[in-house]
Amino acid sequence: MLTITPCLLWLTLSLMVLFPGRLTKEEWLFLFLASSIIIMLLFSIPAASLQSPDMKFGMSEETVFLLNRNLLFPLLTVLFIGWITRRNWPVQILFLTVFSLVTGSYIRLDERLTIVTHVPYIFAFTAFYLCTMLLLHQLFRWSAKNQMETVKDP
């Protein structure tokens, strides 16, 4: 995992540079912050189990866990939303399936260093999380659009 995680992080960043998607920089920042907060809060209860002796992490394992939690998963979320924004629904469903499978498989490689504890139906859970983020993004865009219209009106 100490090799795979930085490589996957590099790949995600490269894809973001090469194919940035259709997000404004405000949307990008909103998604990064919102997904980071949701992921950190979701992990906060299982992360408490790290205090038990059988779950103690070494420094390298902790680094991998922090890279996953603070960078890789939020960036993957932003990449996913960027790629599916303003596309028709069959493409959106295809991307949702691909992203859920890729992220779920990566989590299954080592659950301890990605999500700390075992979560059943991880693919469905990932898809649900991505749909939630998509909904939050739509609300943010609607809010921004609404504000612009309010400014234009007078």
């Binding site: 405000e26 909103f30 912050l33 919102a34 907060i37 943010f140 809010s143 921004a144 609404n146």
Partner: peptide
């Protein structure tokens, strides 16, 4: 409004 929301976040 989006700026305020981002600031809180």
């Amino acid at each position: 409004r989006p700026q305020r929301l981002t600031m809180f976040l």
